[in-house]
Design a protein around this nucleic acid. Structure first.
Lengths: 329, 329
DNA sequence: CTGTTAGCGCTTTCAT
DNA sequence: ATGAAAGCGCTAACAG
């Protein structure tokens, strides 16, 4: 059943059907009614593909993320999807695993399918976008980086000030009287680098010595958090505050600290990052940094929409995270 | 830049270009080389839309889920996406919120975009699919229900035996010596109903009386779990085992039980459901039921793929969950 | 092995 | 207000 069938049955030309379909004004009222009746009768849906071929837009955007199972990405992708759906766009989900090859492949098909725009979620794309094979693809399509930035491709960004976020955590611990602080670095992205810097500068600002030595490299997750704490314990160093790069790592830290017989937060204070559900599951609930993925997502969608429809003035922006008090600091 | 431009530059017809593009064998080697050179030079990508118009397939599937932020759905959707990506399909993400209207809207555009297939994730779709406006749309497209089933539309299912899952939990508690069991019902889907039934039959089978009275209706989440336990405490009834419909609810139960001064699992044993990361975050880690979302996803993709490509014999199937021991039972 | 041609289902001038 | 006709960029007969 296509537009010709409808036209024939309604006794009009396909142009008229098309006009009715697209709510154009120049159709006589009774003609419109007649066509609409046939449309309804057959529950007719125009082919978005044929439409797309003409308009060269399928009203689709691609969302590239490392792994949708990571709650922070899930929250971001969820909001992006919902917002675009409201605006009449569909979202293609792409789990790149942070890999160059997968990213290139997804971008490839995004181009072939002529998506209207792309959202790159996560600071991993700062690095990935520098790869020439990626960069060359990106110039073709409106693109927004959610919590990422790149100079190589012309693009816009919604940035989260992760540097400031960790500084917030440090300041809070210092205000509580903590002096022997450690930072658990559990990722290797640009964002993770910024968090480190935030820790270092805040610690220095508080007059605490030995900045770099206070950074423990570990893996993201409960295991990583526990191992890092065990490492500190074994070193025999004093500690009264642990700042973590992610909630899930902080959970591990909390477990290990308690297991070692310390009270939280009296003996050792701990902070997480992300204000995720893990923070609330943790016992006691984590004091954490809210990095507002929903807000980042919302602004990214706004930005990309105005880029696609070329309607508004648009510009990149930066969002400030906030401290959320739980029971660990 | 389209196929005509390439053809002109390579000095061949568009058919030949098309043949090269699609790796057809009947092209002379040097012609192929010549065309490929031009293709490469311009980094040419054929339009999937134009292709789709001819083949009436964009190699896209829609995945409908309630909310991708729910870890169990995230894991399912992740695996579905990855698997389809491997097979050369893109995935449209649809967060329906479990609402009829949204579901209808997503299915609408899925039809308009002529998706090759649909995966419905979650038992909520058992109910939704019965709505006539939904049912009428579903007959048009190959569809698989991941952990759902419906007789109204011709469809295939990959089912998780949630009835058995909860029975496993009950049996485990009974074996530990628990007799005063309660079940925290925290959802209102078909799957939740099956879990209830599993609880009731397992409890009865163990010779424990008062089945229905042992089911506490509450809301999903930490709050819900805590409130339910407080309710039991206030009633003054004895209890030594709490079976929960979801990990996140079990987390709340654990918190409340401990807060009341009971030891876990010595005084009160608790089980969760989903084998999610929450189970590991919980202190002590939850004993939980692994409902294998990755496996469900994998089989769903296999099923849908063979449905789409009409290659294999295909049939619905049911998966058995497994008990995973943590520290709460 | 290669080219010509007729669509795929729609939108959009351009006439009428 | 309506219709005829020309594409959008590709695939797939069909001819040669």
């Amino acid at each position: 059943m296509n537009i010709y069938d409808i036209a024939k049955e309604a006794g009009v030309s396909i142009s008229t059907v098309s006009r009715v379909l697209n709510n154009k004004s120049n159709v006589r009222e009774d003609t419109r009614k007649r066509v609409e009746a046939v449309l309804e009768k057959h529950d007719y849906r125009p082919s978005a593909i044929a439409r797309g071929l003409v308009s060269s837009s399928m009203r689709t955007v691609a969302v590239l993320t490392v792994d949708i199972r990571e709650p922070n990405y899930a929250r971001t992708a969820y909001t992006i999807e919902r917002e675009f759906s409201r605006r009449g766009y569909e979202v293609m989900l792409c789990n790149t695993g942070g890999e160059l090859k997968e990213t290139a492949k997804y971008l490839q098909t995004a181009i072939e399918k002529n998506v209207d725009g792309i959202v790159l979620v996560g600071s991993i794309f700062n690095t990935l976008c520098k790869a020439p094979e990626i960069e060359s693809m990106l110039v073709r399509i409106p693109m927004v980086l959610a919590n990422g930035r790149t100079d190589t491709a012309k693009s816009y960004s919604v940035l989260m000030d992760d540097r400031y976020g960790v500084a917030l955590a440090v300041d809070h611990l210092v205000k509580r009287g903590c002096r022997e602080l450690y930072y658990l670095k559990d990722m290797d992205t640009v964002s993770a680098q910024l968090k480190c810097e935030g820790f270092l500068s805040a610690v220095e600002h508080a007059g605490i010595a030995g900045g770099r030595r206070r950074i423990i490299d570990t893996s993201r997750g409960i295991e990583g958090g526990m191992k890092a704490v065990e490492q500190i314990l074994e070193s025999g160093k004093q500690f009264d505050g642990i700042v973590c790069g992610e909630d899930i790592t902080a959970v591990g830290a909390v477990k290990a600290v308690r297991r070692a017989g310390f009270r939280i937060p009296e003996d050792v204070a701990v902070t997480g990052y992300n204000n995720s559900e893990y923070a609330r599951v943790c016992e006691p609930p984590l004091t954490t940094i809210d990095n507002k993925p929903e807000l980042v997502a919302m602004l990214s969608v706004q930005l990309l929409t105005s880029l696609i429809e070329d309607t508004d003035a648009y510009s990149s922006c930066t969002i400030q995270p906030e401290l959320v008090r739980g029971g660990t600091a």
